[in-house]
Computed example of a mutant assay.
Amino acid sequence: MTDDAARFGDPRLPAETITSKSHLFRLAALPPTTYDGGTQQQAHEDNFPILQGQQASIQLITLQPGGIREPHWHPSAWEINLVTKGVATWVLIDGNGNHESFDAHVDDLVFAPQGSLHYFENRGAEDLDVLIVQNASAAEDKDNIGIGETVSQLPPEVLSAVFGVPVETFRSFKKLDNAVTILRSQ
Rank of each mutant, 00 (worst) to 15 (best):
M1R: 03
T2C: 02
D3Q: 13
D3M: 07
D3L: 13
A6I: 15
G9K: 01
G9S: 07
G9F: 00
D10C: 01
R12K: 12
E16N: 13
T19I: 02
T19V: 02
T19P: 02
S20W: 13
K21G: 14
K21D: 13
S22V: 00
R26Y: 11
L27H: 01
L27A: 01
L30M: 04
P31E: 06
T34E: 13
T34V: 11
D36E: 13
G38T: 13
T39C: 04
Q40F: 10
Q40R: 12
Q41D: 09
A43M: 09
H44F: 15
E45R: 14
I50N: 00
I50P: 01
G53V: 15
Q54V: 15
Q54A: 15
I58G: 06
Q59G: 14
Q59F: 12
L60N: 07
T62C: 12
L63W: 01
P65E: 09
I68A: 11
R69F: 02
R69N: 13
P71A: 05
P71L: 04
P71W: 01
H72N: 03
W73Y: 13
H74A: 01
H74N: 11
P75E: 08
A77T: 14
A77Q: 08
I80H: 15
V83S: 04
T84I: 06
T84V: 12
K85P: 08
G86T: 04
V87Y: 00
A88T: 10
A88E: 00
T89G: 08
L92N: 07
I93E: 05
N96R: 12
N98I: 09
E100S: 10
D103S: 14
D103A: 15
A104V: 13
D107C: 15
D108F: 14
V110S: 03
V110T: 15
F111L: 11
F111E: 11
A112T: 15
G115R: 10
L117M: 10
Y119L: 05
F120A: 02
N122L: 01
R123C: 09
D127H: 00
V130Y: 00
V133D: 04
Q134A: 12
N135Y: 06
A136E: 03
A139Y: 07
E140L: 14
K142Q: 09
N144S: 09
I145S: 07
G146H: 05
P156I: 12
P156Q: 14
E157C: 04
V158F: 10
A161P: 04
G164F: 03
V165C: 03
F170L: 13
F170E: 08
R171Q: 12
R171V: 15
S172Q: 08
F173S: 02
L176E: 06
L176I: 02
A179H: 05
A179C: 03
V180P: 01
V180F: 10
R184E: 09
Q186D: 13
